[in-house]
Design a protein around this nucleic acid. Structure first.
Lengths: 131, 131
DNA sequence: CAAACAATTTAGAATGATTATAATATAATT
DNA sequence: AATTATATTATAATCATTCTAAATTGTTTG
């Protein structure tokens, strides 16, 4: 592991949030002011390809990264903020319903976070919804 | 509904695949050669915001659109191709585990499609993986 | 240690997706 | 028909991401 790879990995690992590439870059620059955005992309892709980190995508927003295996996500459909949650494991029932093996699954539950729930009531300019 | 809105809606509705904006644009141009990409974006966003169509995002790929409510997705982790599947409904158990109401959920199961499963064995240049 | 080779980083250009803007065209309303 | 509102066009602008080639660093081996 190179020094940047390790540093990026630690930023992703230590963060309670789900960081975008740009946020990771900003944090990395605190300790390594000369680093360049492409390096962050290179290392994130490398670690993603090797399965070390996970990419989380929410429609219309840049991908985010996290590290913890085995958890699900609670996503605010309005502001896109993500919380970790752990629902009961679905691997076995999904495999049996699918009738074949698979690699992993991704479960997101969309809701309105407390702040957005408030705003939604008044504002007519809501960012949008899914499904 | 304007003529473009209706036409775009029908393209999304009729397609067996999950189309990207660009694919929808290409199909729309067959019947309406003068239409412009921004119109496709405008109408898709409008229909997405009003809940008429659904946006499906897979990490690292442009968003795709579909129409059917109430189904899940089987995604090839290598090429990103999406198939519709219907697992048993999780609304009730998720709500009770979460302890609160939510808007909807999104369940994706990642696997290697037959073509990619083959390639994976040989090629050392695999596009990557998640989790 | 030094030469040779491999891998990483940099800088910046290139590509793609999406949004914003202002002008024009179309549709709806009085 | 005149007025107003809404959609569409044609760009330009903005982001996110990838690519390229050169420079740098790291590793291996004579």
């Amino acid at each position: 592991m190179t020094k940047y790879e390790r540093a990026i990995y630690n930023i992703v690992r230590m963060s309670r949030e789900h960081l975008t590439v740009r946020q990771i870059f900003e944090r990395l620059k605190m300790d390594h002011p000369k680093v360049v955005l492409a390096t962050v992309y290179n290392n994130l892709n490398k670690m993603w390809e090797s399965g070390l980190i996970r990419k989380v995508s929410v429609e219309g927003m840049p991908d985010r990264y996290d590290i913890l295996q085995k958890h699900d996500h609670l996503v605010c459909k309005r502001c896109g903020k993500i919380l970790d949650v752990s629902f009961e494991d679905l691997t076995a029932p999904l495999r049996s319903q699918l009738g074949q093996d698979f690699l992993f699954y991704d479960l997101k539950v969309y809701y309105l976070c407390p702040e957005c729930g408030e705003k939604e009531k008044t504002s007519e300019e809501a960012p949008g919804q899914s499904i």
